[in-house]
Structures are given as structure tokens and as C-alpha cells.
Design a protein around this nucleic acid. Structure first.
Length: 280
RNA sequence: GGGUCUAAUAUUGAGCGAC
């Protein structure tokens, strides 16, 4: 069964759910019963594709087949709703969980928080965080990065920094993603200097910048029209063993194009293709 | 009786489409 579950996942990932369903039928014919991992993988893929109706349908089908929902399968359904902006449905689902004696854990609460933020419902996001705290959950790196990026996107950069301070004071170690949220937030606000400071700070903490850290800086420099700096980040990341991705290239290409530097843009496009990237 | 493997949450660009 574990082997089948592992085989099934890539199928779900590439969206070939029809094929996946066939395999499911095949498994049954061979006398195997799909377990909660099987169903959860499928629901996860559906959720990622934004197909929340199908995900919740599958959830009930799973129950119908005698598989008992656990924290993870419920988390997938919550995620599917949140990703699709169906926050009312998500909240209702949490209540159902409670009614059935399955108390949502910190991951599910973080999922809800991200959902409210994504839906632009910052007030509900705050209320939710307060609710989490009163239930005895402490904020983790996921909670903080969600809050920081959400606040920054709502134009509340100062508040985002305050949240970061709070995080340090409570002894919760910032992760690379938390730093990335801050770096990006400052880049978006045109405060590239502050962004670079956070970048340096991160490395001083012994954290290794990832492709998102670099891409955020690249975007920041591009937005300010400092294409030379952006290009230098590109070579820096290569030197540091972090290969640029499609986003790194298209950010700079777009930056060049916006300034009318067509030849530079085309040159970079050619370089990118040479390295095996397909422009999208 | 014990152990292992497979499933859930946060951060980066652009474009397209919908309203």
C-alpha cells in the first residue's frame, strides 16, 4: 500500500487525476483498500488546483468508504477551502471537526490565518490569531511569516516590523521564510537598503538565503531601475551555489524591457535559454 | 509488543483570464 501511495503522488501532482482514479479502482480490484494517505494525497492535489468542491466531495467519499478522517486529511480540506477563498466554509469545517471530537491543531489554525490574509480579511486574521493564543497555541515561524507578509501587502510595513520584533522577544527563531517575507516587504516599499540589511542579518544568524531571498532583492532593484545591481545579485547567487530560477531571469528581463533596454533583455533571454529554461 | 516508509499550513517575478 505504501508503494502504491508513493506511486500515486506524482500522478496527482501533474493533475492526472483521471489516471489516478483508475489506479484507485485497480487497487480495489486487487483487494487493497486505499487508506487515509491515499485519499489525503488526492485531496491535497485537488486543493492545490483550487478545486475545493471536489476535494470536499472526496473527503465524504473517504468517510463513506470507512476511512476515518484524521488531522492531516482534515487539514487538506481546510487548505482547499482557504486557498479558494471560501473562508466561511472553512470556518464551518473547523466547527464540524470540533463537533466530532477532533480539535484543530496549530497547523490547521495557521492555514486558516493564511486564508484570511489571502482573502484580504485582516481583521478576521487578527481575531483568529487572538483566538489561537487564547486556545494556548503559540505562534510559530509559519504564523509569523504569514502575518508579516500579510501586513506588508496591506501596506502596514511598520506593523510588520513590530511583529518581527515580537517574534525575537518571544524567543521564536526566525526562519529563512520569515526573513524572506521581511526582505520582500521592504523591497516592495522601495526600501532596498533595509532589505539588504535583513539579508545580511539573516546570514549572520547562520541561515542560508534561498532562491526566494535572492529573487526578492532582484525584484527590489529592478523596481528601482537599478538593473546593474539586480544583475550582480544574479551572479552572486550563482557564486553562492544557489542557481537562479525562471523567476530570477524573468524579473530582470522585465526590468530591462521596461527601461527600453531591449538588447540587454534579449541577451539575458538567450542566456536563460542556453541554461535550459523555457520562457513562459 | 515495538519500529520505519508515503499525505496537510507561511515567503519571491511576469503574463493571461474573470469580475
Amino acid at each position: 500500500l505504501v508503494t502504491y501511495n508513493s506511486l500515486l503522488r506524482p500522478l496527482f501532482e501533474i493533475g492526472r487525476l483521471l489516471d489516478a482514479c483508475k489506479v484507485l479502482e485497480m487497487m480495489k480490484k486487487m483487494g487493497m483498500s486505499p487508506d487515509s494517505v491515499t485519499f489525503t494525497s488526492m485531496m491535497h492535489s485537488l486543493g492545490k488546483a483550487g478545486r475545493f468542491r471536489q476535494a470536499s466531495k472526496l473527503f465524504f467519499r473517504m468517510i463513506g468508504e470507512g476511512v476515518v478522517p484524521n488531522m492531516i486529511s482534515c487539514g487538506c480540506v481546510v487548505h482547499a477551502f482557504c486557498k479558494a477563498g471560501q473562508m466561511d466554509a472553512a470556518a464551518e469545517f473547523l466547527e464540524d471537526m470540533n463537533r466530532n471530537g477532533l480539535t484543530p491543531n496549530h497547523i490547521i489554525h495557521n492555514t486558516m490565518l493564511a486564508g484570511y490574509v489571502k482573502a484580504g480579511q485582516l481583521d478576521k486574521a487578527w481575531t483568529h490569531v487572538q483566538g489561537m493564543t487564547s486556545k494556548g497555541f503559540h505562534k510559530d515561524a509559519y504564523t509569523y511569516s504569514t502575518l508579516i507578509s500579510g501586513l506588508a501587502k496591506a501596506g502596514q510595513l511598520a506593523l510588520a516590523c513590530q511583529v518581527f520584533e515580537e517574534m525575537n522577544q518571544t524567543g521564536c527563531k526566525p526562519s529563512v521564510v520569515v526573513y524572506n517575507s521581511l526582505i520582500d516587504a521592504h523591497c516592495k516599499a522601495g526600501q532596498i537598503y533595509a532589505a539588504c540589511q535583513y539579508f545580511t542579518d539573516m546570514t549572520l544568524q547562520g541561515l542560508v538565503p534561498d532562491v526566494c531571498s535572492y529573487n526578492a532583492l532582484i525584484d527590489g532593484f529592478c523596481k528601482l531601475g537599478q538593473l546593474n545591481q539586480a544583475t550582480s545579485i544574479l551572479s552572486q547567487m550563482q557564486q553562492n551555489g544557489c542557481p537562479p530560477d525562471l523567476i530570477s531571469y524573468t524579473s530582470i528581463i522585465h526590468g530591462f524591457a521596461k527601461r527600453g533596454q531591449q538588447s540587454e533583455a534579449l541577451w539575458l533571454l538567450a542566456t536563460m535559454k542556453k541554461r535550459g529554461f523555457v520562457p513562459d
